[in-house]
Design a protein around this nucleic acid. Structure first.
Length: 423
RNA sequence: GGAGAAAUGGCAGAGUGGUCGAAUGCGGCAGUCUUGAAAACUGUUGAGGGUCACACCUCCGGGGGUUCGAAUCCCUCUUUCUCCGCCA
């Protein structure tokens, strides 16, 4: 959520920057400013009314104390209209504040200046590419065929238990999955991220804090009986650890990592490109989250990108990095880099990480602040990234490491797996 | 799940209808002293709205109510603790 004060001062620039997202926000921004104006005048009126009645109440108290009950009763009568007024103004103010809030929720984050304009993922800008694309055997297969051939993932069995998009990992498939989780967590810890274990269900306030609510409600599984949401990413519980916190400057940098399963309804996603592990309702992911001083957040973002590069180098997977264009950029993000692994057998790029700087957008919703050198509260910057999302890394490994007599395991994972080949 | 108790500032903890945004202690910050530090002493120290700055307004777990006036009384929700039951 953008700060009102920022909108007040930079309406023109914001409106212009949002055009990169193909959004014409100027009339919405006007509405917001108008409503804000109305909010402040109403607030002022309410404050004056309350001040008046506070004053009277004090006088009444004094009069009663000094035994002048009659005079007190005269004043009492005067408070009646003040009460009505403040009730009316208070209701009005609440209504305005609510409306203002809902308008503010509709404005996405301002894209960073480096974000290219564009409509779809075709307009994303490739900024880096590394790793050799392997030459595979002639009858190379996509991972869903390999999974069946080696009996390591059973999609049909998952359908029986839960439904499509809930695979069952078996034997070496399950072990490889666990190996990846441990490997990622170890790499992140090595890079200075503190490992956390967090709830996999969150309340509404948490969803609002990181921006999944109110507008993307349909993307999360909702547990009606207890009004909780299954997390779509560890970003939600981990970032919300800092909701309503005021940090001190020396607390920075804050670097956390967490493994969690992720649950996404993915309503409306069908077709061949969501086959196998490409898109799931439940998948595993190791996430990194940072809370930073505003002046360091872009350096931190670069650091996260470098860190993920290192992991992919170790896994020897061919990958590229995209700078997302305005149209593809997430609602709450100012700048996002997507990592994609090339899946040779599917002949396509698979997104395996998304690294973003949210600047103050989430912090404003979270009320995540720090005290600056003058002792004033300032909003912190939040960032996060996948390091990494499991299923597509698994797909990439299965497909790129397949040989005529089995699937080789990347060297760095062998100690975690306890085997070096799936056959 | 049943019965009871509680929720106050960074923490501990007073306050049971009116000069209470809230005593006191600890912690934090600044200063004095010291070569420096510790100790001691002095001062300062919640958040938000509003204002050029003040004034002023709101917040004592959340929401609602009673009252001229609520941290204090009532209702409700949530959470925590104790006891019982159940249980990985």
């Amino acid at each position: 959520m953008l700060q009102l004060q920022v909108i007040r001062e930079n309406k023109g620039e914001i409106s212009k920057a949002l055009q990169k997202r193909n959004i014409d926000a100027s009339s919405l921004l006007d509405d917001i400013l108008q409503l804000d104006e109305k909010r402040r005048t109403t607030q002022t009126q309410l404050d004056a009314t309350l001040a008046e009645s506070n004053k009277l109440s004090k006088e009444i108290g004094m009069l009663f104390k000094s035994g002048k009950a009659q005079e007190a009763n005269v004043l009492k009568k005067k408070t009646g209209t003040l009460k009505e007024d403040s009730k009316r103004l208070g209701d009005e103010l609440n209504g305005i504040a609510e409306e203002l809030q809902s308008l503010l929720y509709q404005i996405p984050n301002i894209p960073h200046e480096s974000v290219p304009a564009g409509n779809t993922d075709e307009d994303n800008e490739e900024i880096f590419k590394e790793g050799d694309i392997p030459t595979l055997v002639d009858d190379a297969q996509p991972h869903w065929e390999l999974a069946k051939k080696y009996d390591i993932i059973d999609f049909e069995l998952g359908v029986k238990i839960a439904g499509a998009g809930f695979p069952v990992y078996k034997g070496k498939g399950a072990r490889l999955q666990r190996a990846l989780i441990s490997y990622f967590l170890d790499k992140n810890a090595e890079a200075g991220y503190t490992e956390m274990q967090v709830p996999h269900l969150v309340n509404e306030a948490s969803g609002l804090g990181t921006g999944q609510l109110p507008d993307k409600e349909g993307q999360m599984y909702h547990v009606g009986g207890d009004d909780l949401y299954l997390i779509p990413t560890a970003e939600v519980p981990v970032t919300n650890l800092f909701r309503d916190e005021i940090l001190s400057e020396k607390d920075f940098p804050i670097c956390y990592t967490a493994y969690t399963p992720c649950f996404r309804r993915e309503a409306g996603s069908y077709g061949a490109h969501v086959r196998g592990l490409n898109r799931l309702h439940q998948f595993d992911k190791v996430e990194i989250v940072r809370v930073e001083h505003p002046k360091n957040s872009y350096k931190a973002l670069d650091g996260m990108v470098e860190h993920i590069k290192n992991i992919l180098r170790e896994l020897k997977l061919p990958y590229r990095i995209l700078r997302l264009c305005g149209g593809d950029l997430g609602f709450t993000s100012a700048l996002t880099f997507d990592f994609e692994v090339f899946s040779t057998a599917q002949d396509r790029w698979l997104e395996i990480s998304s690294v973003s700087n949210f600047e103050t957008y989430q912090a404003n919703r979270l009320k995540l602040r720090y005290k600056d050198e003058n002792g004033k509260s300032q909003l912190a910057h939040t960032l996060n990234g996948s390091a990494l999302a499991l299923p597509r890394v698994l797909a990439g490994i299965l497909e790129n490491y397949q040989t005529a007599d089995g699937i080789e395991i990347p060297k760095v994972l062998v100690p975690y797996c306890g085997f070096d080949k799936i056959d």
